[in-house]
């Protein structure tokens, strides 16, 4: 039975101790810890939100940069194509030009050759005429008594002329 009877002395010490402990912990103990944990929770929430926002912003930036990159790539291909076409055109133009030029020169050269040939033929004819006159002169200068010898002379002279030519 004595177990169930509270003791006044112990009651005094227990009240004193518990109230002091309660006062100290209620002021400097538990609220500080719970407040810190809650503040930390808020801080973590805020940080997570900020990180989320930063992430989405980063994703936006990445998308934009990829778009820009793709556009640039397209542009590059386009420019390259244009450049190739232009180059081909230039080359073909140059070729045509060169061909024309060559044709022209060839034609000129041909015309010149033809003219020169004409000239040469004319010169030969003149020469022949002169030679003929010369030959005739020589023939006439030789004795014209023998027909045979005359003929031989003429032939020889002609040969000479031909070989000289």
């Amino acid at each position: 039975m004595e177990l169930l009877l509270p003791d006044s002395g112990l009651l005094f010490w227990m009240l004193l101790a518990f109230i002091i402990v309660f006062a100290v912990l209620a002021k400097y103990g538990f609220p500080v810890i719970t407040k810190m944990v809650e503040e930390r929770k808020l801080y973590i929430d805020k940080s997570l939100k900020a990180a989320d926002e930063a992430n989405s912003a980063l994703a936006g930036i990445k998308a934009t940069s990829e778009k820009i990159l793709a556009e640039a790539h397209e542009q590059q291909i386009k420019i390259l194509n244009e450049a190739t076409q232009a180059g081909e055109k230039i080359i073909s133009d140059a070729k045509r030009e060169a061909q024309l030029q060559a044709q022209k020169q060839l034609d000129e050269v041909r015309a010149q050759i033809a003219a020169e040939r004409e000239e040469a033929i004319r010169a030969v004819r003149r020469e022949i005429a002169v030679l003929s006159v010369d030959i005739a002169e020589k023939v006439t200068r030789n004795s014209l008594n023998r027909d045979k010898s005359q003929m031989e002379l003429v032939n020889r002279l002609l040969d000479e002329v031909i070989t000289n030519k």
Partner: peptide, 27 residues
Amino acid sequence: LDLSLTKTACGVLISSILLVVIVLSCS
């Protein structure tokens, strides 16, 4: 009138000091 620091009262004091030290160190 008996306000002796009995074994149980001492126990209360020891535990109280221990508790205050532990919780205050954490806070």
